[in-house]
Simulated scan of single mutants.
Amino acid sequence: MAQTATTGTTVAEVMAELAALEDPRIREVNVRHGDDHGVNLTKLRAVAKRLKTQHELARELWATGDTAARLLALLVCRPKAFERDELDTMLRDARTPKVHDWLVGYVVKKSPHAEALRVAWFADPDPVVASAGWALTTDRVARSPEGLDLPGLLDVIEAQMKDAPDRLQWAMNHCLAQIGIEHAEHRARALEIGERLEVLKDYPTPPGCTSPFAPAWITEMVSRQHTP
């Protein structure tokens, strides 16, 4: 097994450490959410902090296919070092929710290929891939909306969100909420779409947390913006 130049850590050693951190109770909870690993994420982040950035080690960890190893890989990789095609392959191979979310949020968003991938993934026939395109679009709605067709996005959400598969529906709903929160000129329409479609209206929300139901989400976040 190849060793990294910095620490001498091998993939086998890291995998053994992750195996030692495995907790059946955590795995049981994660499996209910579609994530097949049993490692406490705080402990996983502590391992990543010790390893620091090691891009080649990250590639080797990703290649194992193990979910905990892939999550660790996403914490120790160098996001800007991945090629566009490599990120596309990784995204299509990332089928567990946590790996998918971390790949998009921690790596792709920081990549120089983020916008090209956003456009490519947005209309992909695979709904899980498309959800990544919507997640990147939502990030742009909040951070750099120039050039986005917000009325056009609302048209697509209005026509497709109600019957979209779960992960894609969730991503579209987030985009709907973000448009309503960030863009006052589109808020009334965003609220109306959310009220009419009723997506996630009955989603169980713990006390003190914001409901993912778009009208409630928009109303809550806008009220916070105007609270002294």
Rank of each mutant, 00 (worst) to 15 (best):
A2F: 01
A5R: 15
A16L: 07
E17D: 14
I26M: 05
V29W: 02
V29Q: 12
H33P: 01
D36V: 15
T42A: 14
R45T: 07
Q54K: 14
H55L: 09
A58R: 02
L61D: 00
W62G: 03
G65M: 09
A68G: 12
L75Y: 04
L75S: 11
A81M: 10
D88M: 05
A94M: 05
W102Q: 07
P112T: 12
E115K: 13
A120I: 06
S131V: 05
S131T: 06
A132R: 05
A135H: 06
L136N: 03
T137Q: 08
A142H: 06
A142Q: 09
S144Y: 08
S144C: 14
E146W: 04
G147I: 09
L148Y: 02
L148V: 11
D149K: 15
L150N: 07
P151V: 07
G152N: 11
Q160P: 00
R167E: 11
Q169F: 10
W170G: 04
M172V: 02
M172E: 04
A177M: 09
G180M: 02
G180F: 00
I181G: 03
H183G: 12
H183A: 14
H186T: 08
L191P: 00
L197D: 03
Y203S: 06
G208E: 05
T210D: 01
S211P: 01
M221L: 14
H226Y: 04
P228F: 14
